[in-house]
Each structure stands twice: as structure tokens, then as C-alpha cells.
């Protein structure tokens, strides 16, 4: 059992030379085995939260803590966070020319485990995971994200999540830009990882659509850089009906 705990997190980014505060005191705890959905309108800071947890240098932490089983995540480098068990499925995965998917996956697995994976099992694992995500085996020899369609990039992110087996996975709008078929494939992948172990999933999304396939235990409504309300799956249903207006107005009025 592991716990990821975010306490009063404040984050700013530099825009036009001026620091702008994006996260204004985020409080959130998630335990392994749980799935939390973070929903919010555009610009509410959802992606900033994701990148801040992963340690992207563009974001400056100005206050608060993030701990993984008591360990200070914010003190870790980007790769140390991953080795501690954090994973970020990115909304816009980066192209890495000349580095094949298979080389990339093997290098990452080696880094996480501290030793190279046993070749036979590894090749089989990769093949199975790709097949489950309905990815052509030829994908393994393509360069990372280069020339991938939007849907292929998202599947590739979930492929990594399946193979790298993190303690906590943050999925940053993995559902955006996917058609229904691709959404189901990606959701099935997320559900396989959930069923397979003790992973905790932070599902960041703008839409309720993916929550029909990946049922969350907890739903957080994120507005103006903090959690405005937390509830069960029924909160997502309410958002489906009424949108974010109630929450946005509440914040505006306060």
C-alpha cells in the first residue's frame, strides 16, 4: 500500500517574464488501488498539476509538498521520481528522432529495475502489451512518437504504463482527441493495469466520457488552481448534466 500526498501545492510559471501562479494550494491524497478523476475546465491548472508532479522544469514550486510514502518527491530529479514509482502519460508526447520504441522501452525498463530485463520475457511482454492495445508490431521499430497519429501517441503512453508498472500513474487528458474506438482501447489498457496490481491512477480529464469506461473511486473538481469539490462517481454524473458552471461561479463569487 502506497500513498501519494499533495499538500497545499502552489506552482507558478513564467509568462512574458512574469511569474503567474497557476496552482493555488492543491490538497489531494491518493492510495494505491484507487482511481481518482480530476476534472475541470480549460485553464484550471490540471496539466500544471500533472507536470509539477513529474518535475517539468518549466514549473516552479512556490509552496507546499508532494510526498510518496513520506518521501519528498519535490526534492527528486525527474528521473528519480519515475524510479520512485511515478508515471506521467502526457497529453502531448514528445518525438524523439532516431530512438526506436523498442530501444526506448528497454532503456526505461532497465533504468527502473536497475538491470536489463530478461530478454525472452521482455520481448513477449512487449508483444503482448502491444497486441492488447491493437498496435502493429512494426511500431516497435518506429522512432518514438515520430509521425504517430494522436491516437497512436496515446496508445504508446498506455503501453509504457503497462510495461513500466508504476505505483502511481498520472494520465493527463489521455482521452482527448480520441475517437470512441480508440478511447475504448486506451480505457481497456488502463483497466488492465488497474486490475493487475496496486497502481493508483490520477485521471485528468476535461470530459466525462472516459469515466464510463474507467470508473473512478473519487472525483475532484478542479477550478482556478485548486480542488473545488471532492466526491464520488456521482459527481461526474452531475458534471455530465450541468457542466462546470456551478463551480466556476462559486469560485468567481468567492
Amino acid at each position: 500500500m502506497a500513498t501519494l500526498e499533495i499538500r497545499d501545492l502552489h506552482v507558478s510559471v513564467e509568462t512574458d517574464g512574469e511569474p503567474t501562479e497557476i496552482l493555488r494550494g492543491v490538497d489531494l491524497s491518493i492510495e494505491s488501488g484507487q482511481t481518482h478523476a480530476i476534472m475541470g475546465p480549460n485553464g484550471s491548472g490540471k496539466s500544471t498539476l500533472a507536470y509539477s508532479i513529474a518535475g517539468h522544469p518549466k514549473y516552479t514550486i512556490t509552496g507546499g509538498t508532494v510526498t510518496l510514502d513520506g518521501e519528498d518527491v519535490l526534492a527528486m530529479s525527474v528521473d528519480e521520481r519515475a524510479r520512485a514509482g511515478l508515471f506521467l502519460a502526457m497529453q502531448y508526447p514528445v518525438e524523439v528522432p532516431g530512438v526506436t520504441v523498442s530501444n526506448f522501452l528497454r532503456t526505461a525498463k532497465t533504468a527502473l529495475d536497475g538491470e536489463a530485463p530478461a530478454l525472452r520475457h521482455w520481448v513477449k511482454d512487449v508483444r503482448t502489451a502491444m497486441s492488447d492495445l491493437k498496435m502493429d508490431p512494426a511500431f516497435a521499430e518506429r522512432n518514438v512518437n515520430e509521425g504517430f497519429s494522436g491516437g497512436e501517441k496515446k496508445r504508446h503512453e498506455i503501453l509504457q504504463m503497462e510495461l513500466l508498472k508504476p505505483k502511481f500513474a498520472v494520465l493527463d487528458e489521455t482521452d482527448s482527441g480520441l475517437d470512441v474506438d480508440a478511447l475504448k482501447i486506451v480505457s481497456d489498457g488502463v483497466n488492465r493495469v488497474r486490475a493487475g496490481g496496486d497502481v493508483g491512477v490520477l485521471l485528468i480529464t476535461h470530459y466525462t466520457r472516459i469515466l464510463r469506461y474507467v470508473r473512478p473511486d473519487v472525483v475532484h473538481v478542479f477550478v482556478a488552481g485548486r480542488v473545488a469539490e471532492t466526491g464520488g462517481p456521482e459527481l461526474a454524473d452531475e458534471l455530465e448534466e450541468n457542466g462546470y458552471d456551478r463551480f466556476v461561479q462559486a469560485v468567481a463569487a468567492s
Binding site: 513529474a54 528521473d79 519515475a82 514528445v94 526506448f104 533504468a111 527502473l112
Partner: peptide, 9 residues
């Protein structure tokens, strides 16, 4: 960043 976020030093 992308590579390091997968644990690669």
C-alpha cells in the same frame, strides 16, 4: 524531459 520522466537518467 520525456525520456527522464520514464526513469532514464
Amino acid at each position: 524531459f520525456y525520456l527522464r520522466s520514464r526513469g532514464i537518467p
